[in-house]
Design a binder for these strands. Structure first.
Lengths: 231, 231
DNA sequence: CGTATTCTTGACTTATATCAATGTCGGTGG
DNA sequence: CCACCGACATTGATATAAGTCAAGAATACG
């Protein structure tokens, strides 16, 4: 299978690279199709590759010793993932599961330093990417520390609608299958509480639910909720 | 004031740099003493410099719109901080306060890319540093999602004892002034709850408290608590 | 010394988890 | 094509961890 360099070039991460550099990167890339529900890699497995998501949607999860699961982040098209070597560790800290049918590109881990040495700009961009991710993590910590569940869920849903929203007749539809359990694992609560909150919102016309479906009908009211206005 | 390059060289971040490179970095460095309680920079201020903590202890805080404060992280000697440019932003995302009298080294923000271009290795190491920080943030998210307050506080205290512990007669003393409020802001709870927990621990001989003081007397029992053993 | 933080402790409230039961959707295979 | 099964979702009742409110005690500091 052949992947065109123009696809990579459209991503911020690679836009500064020259065509020859891109081609030499692509030479070593291994494309792979991942079926919904399948794992790209598992938590604790040796980090032999790092990846780029071309199409689809992944969730990165971690399980605690006592078996509780959390969603560390969602991976959207254009995102790098499986970045273990940046964390100076040799195994993956989480599991990457396809939330929808996905297409990924993989490179052997040891190619990373070669690419970076060839192209220092890539290192800078990659660091900015991780930096943004750090900032997102801090945002989440801040929310979990100070906000009650409903606001956290509101924020999470708004974020999803930005990153994975597709306009439909009724509003903005989250463009991949997402369960109440998923939202619970993203916000540090239980599926029961999420279900209650979404039911309440639905009866107010703010969202429209469904089995693994979610559509935001009234983004403004959701924003009000997220920003603390008592509805 | 002159800072010796051997100080920098002992830090992992700089250990790979050559002496001339280090000297050229030091040429542009501005040392500064920060009194306890003073801020190195404030949340939202333009990020004109990035810094290295040589001595002392800082806390990086963020305040939410409604005035609640959280501690994003502690800065320990040898840590870089005020890294806003890595996050592709021009202002500081938090406030850096001296928890104890501190000594820092500052460089103009725009020097960063010059240093990195001179020394690509520095970029790799810096990325690993941020990567570690990201992992710490994820750990915190995981704890806040799945663990009850007492376990979170136990983890936080254990971490502090690793990063800032000094052996004393009674056990391991946290080597800078730290209040119950601080611990609450690190674990996403209230000073009342922290106070109750520490009181309970003290009566069991696990820790020894005091005004802005904390000594761990029985690290093993604390570990048991952190790992979920009902005491 | 007195004044201001910081800390402790008790009584009460509440948000959210837990427990439990039932309902509904959507795909699979008979 | 329909019936059934398993996964997902809803909703009520109850429990409880932790927050809030309130008051006072201890410690440091000027």
């Amino acid at each position: 299978m052949k992947v065109d360099r123009t696809i990579l070039k459209s991503l911020p991460l690679f836009e500064r690279m020259t065509d020859p550099d891109l081609d030499s990167m692509l030479e070593h890339a291994v494309p792979r199709r991942v079926a919904q529900g399948d794992a790209v890699f598992e938590q604790g497995a040796p980090a032999r590759s790092f990846f780029l998501l071309l199409h689809g949607r992944l969730k990165v999860t971690q399980v605690t010793q006592d078996g509780q699961q959390i969603i560390v982040r969602m991976v959207h098209p254009g995102d790098l993932f499986g970045f273990a070597m940046a964390l100076r560790r040799s195994d993956y800290p989480g599991t990457a599961l396809a939330a929808a049918e996905s297409l990924i590109l993989g490179w052997p881990t040891d190619m990373w330093s070669r690419f970076v040495e060839q192209n220092p700009r890539l290192a800078v961009t990659a660091m900015q990417t991780i930096g943004q991710r750090l900032e997102e993590a801090h945002t989440r910590i801040r929310e979990m520390s100070t906000e009650e569940v409903e606001k956290r869920v509101a924020h999470a849903v708004l974020r999803l609608s930005k990153q994975a929203g597709r306009p439909v007749a009724a509003g903005i539809r989250i463009d991949f299958p997402i369960s109440r359990q998923d939202i619970a694992e993203m916000t540090g609560t239980t599926l029961h509480t999420v279900s209650r909150i979404l039911s309440a919102w639905e009866s107010k016309g703010i969202v429209e639910g469904g089995r693994q479906k979610l559509t935001i009908c009234d983004p403004q009211r959701l924003l009000n909720l997220a920003d603390g206005a008592r509805d």
